[in-house]
Structure formats: C-alpha cells, structure tokens
Amino acid sequence: MTSPASSSEVKYLIESSEGNTFDVSGAALRQSNTFNAMFLNIGADGPIPFTDYNEATLKKVFEYCEHSVNEENYSGPKHQDDLSKWDLNFFNEMDQKMFIDVINASNFLDIERLTSYCCERIARMLRGKNTQEMIKVITLPTAEELEAKQKVEEKKAAAAKKVAEKAAETAEKTETLEELPVQQLVQTTRNKLTRKYLSFSNE
C-alpha cells in the first residue's frame, strides 16, 4: 500500500487508464519530478491515478525507472553510443506508437532522463533523411494520400447527401401515405354508414 515514508522499500500502487493497478517502488517513483511534487511528502491514500496512460506504457516507463534507480543523477543527455546494453535493448523493443506513449507519459511524469533518451532516439530516426523519408518516419500523409483521402471524403459526403435526399423523399411519401388511409377510412365508413342508413330506410 501507499505511505508517505521515503524509504525505498515502500511500494506505491499505480492505476492505469484501464483501471488496473500495479506496484512500483518508491525509489523508482522518486525519479519522477511530478510524483515528487505531488505525493512524496504528503503520501497517497489508495492507488495513484495516472489514468491518461495505459498499463503497458506505464509499466514500460516504470521498468526504466526501476532499472535506473542506482544510476548517478541525470546530468544532461548522454550520447547514444554511451548507452548500456540494457538501455539499447529497452529502446529497440519499442515501436513508434510506444515511443509516443512513453514520451507523453515521461513528459507528464517529468522523468528527464527517459524523455531525453527517447527524444534522442527519434532524432536519430530523422537525421540524414530527405523529405519523403521524413514523411514516412513522422507518418504524415503524402500529397497522393491526402488527395485519395479527400476523394474518399467527397464520395462519403455525396453518399450521405444521397441518403439524406432519399430519406426526405420517403418521409414525404409516408406523410402522404399516412394521410391517404385516414381519408380512405373516412370515405369507406361514410359509404358504409350511408349504405346502412339507406338499407335501414328501405326496410
């Protein structure tokens, strides 16, 4: 459970966006400046909600924090070639989406070291590339893709317009249909009544 004690043995419960909770050591959490500012001194009753981030992302972030607990204090970006084997494996395992999620989470948690290394990795992906290659890396749509997307949207809009027109037409028809049976009903009942009346008068 959570406690305000500053001992590294203390475990804190973290709640992800899925509502799942998991343990993280106090020492690992202390690498987050956001956590330090919010919970370390006052403690937390129950799980700490980081509900903007999913469990996989938070676990990845705190996995890094747990690993770098014993490392010296962060003093500016390290060259990528100076990274340990564990660090390299850690970053190589992540795909682009995970990079975005981890950067977002570490930026919120203010874990300077992790944010900086992730940014350096992304910069490496972009370095020495031309425009087309960069577009692929930053997953921007190309001009052709934009054109195709626009065409699809135009088609969708045209289809929606057709559907709306059809719906309007059917609505008009149903209005007339609804009117017709009532008129017919009135007419038929009138006819029946007059017939009955006539037959009665004949009798």
Partner: peptide
C-alpha cells in the same frame, strides 16, 4: 509522430537535429 508529441519533447528532438534536417 513528431507532431503528436508534447511541445518540450518536440523541441528536444529538434535540438538534436542539424540545420539541413530542419
């Protein structure tokens, strides 16, 4: 990808890039 990141992260990435990359 780059454009979805927070402002500070974007600036950190750009700091690592050369003028021709910009």
């Amino acid at each position: 990808m780059l454009l979805k990141l927070p402002y500070l992260a974007q600036f950190t990435i750009l700091k690592h890039l050369e003028l021709h990359d910009h």
